[in-house]
Simulated scan of single mutants.
Amino acid sequence: MASPISIFLSRVIGHVVDRVVFKVERGHGPAFWITTIIAEIVLGILASVIVFWFSRRREFRADAGGARLAGGGNMIVALERLRLTAGQPHLPDRMAAFGINGVIGQGLKRLFMTHPPLEERIAALKRGS
């Protein structure tokens, strides 16, 4: 839903800029297209950040569900093993698409992570148990 909403809003913004700022009365002028493209890029990035945030929250909930099913200690051990294997040189290339790399991101990089760092997931499970 984030993508269609961002496309719709970018067209609305382009239309408003075209009509109000540049006073185009018929059709769409160049300001509409330029503004729409810029707004689509900006809103698309913002939509991605929101989707990634929900993905990280869902990962914490999945860990909690796994802890309820398998036991908190077993889930912590499983995540710690995953963290140990994430440091091996051959895994990041294979696992990069899944966002699981065990490295804590800094700054803006954290906004674009689909999974929370393994250290945070383990700490959350330890707090919950």
Rank of each mutant, 00 (worst) to 15 (best):
R19A: 02
V17T: 07
F112P: 00
P4K: 13
F8P: 05
V16W: 09
R81T: 09
R121C: 01
P116R: 10
H90C: 00
V77G: 05
I7G: 07
A2R: 12
P92R: 02
V16S: 08
H90T: 07
E119V: 12
F22R: 14
I5F: 14
L69Y: 15
V77D: 09
I100D: 01
R11M: 06
E80I: 14
T85Y: 11
I34E: 01
V16M: 06
R26V: 08
F98Q: 05
A124R: 03
Q88T: 08
R94F: 04
R83V: 04
I38N: 02
A67I: 06
K126Y: 13
R57V: 09
A124F: 07
G105L: 01
V42L: 08
V103I: 11
A123K: 01
D18N: 15
I38D: 01
A78P: 02
S129I: 06
V17P: 01
E59C: 13
G29T: 11
W33C: 01
A64W: 04
F32R: 00
V51L: 06
A86F: 03
P30D: 10
A123Y: 05
L84V: 12
I7E: 05
P4G: 14
P89W: 11
E119M: 10
T85C: 06
F8W: 14
E120S: 04
E80A: 15
V51H: 11
R61I: 01
D63I: 07
I37F: 14
V24F: 12
V17A: 02
G73F: 10
N101F: 03
R110V: 15
M95C: 03
K23M: 03
P30I: 05
V20C: 01
W53Y: 13
D93I: 00
F60G: 03
M113R: 11
L46D: 02
G65E: 09
L69W: 04
H90D: 04
H15Y: 15
H90Q: 10
F54H: 08
P4Y: 07
R81E: 15
V20P: 01
G71F: 10
L69H: 13
G128V: 00
D18R: 10
H115K: 15
R61M: 12
I45N: 05
G29Y: 02
E25P: 04
A123W: 05
R127I: 02
F8I: 15
G44D: 08
E80G: 14
D18M: 09
A124H: 13
F32P: 00
G14L: 05
I34V: 07
A96E: 10
D18S: 08
V24W: 08
E59A: 11
G66A: 12
R26W: 03
F32W: 03
R26L: 14
S129W: 06
Q106L: 03
A39E: 01
F112D: 00
T35C: 12
G29H: 00
I37N: 11
L43T: 06
R68Q: 06
P116A: 13
L9F: 09
I50E: 10
E40D: 07
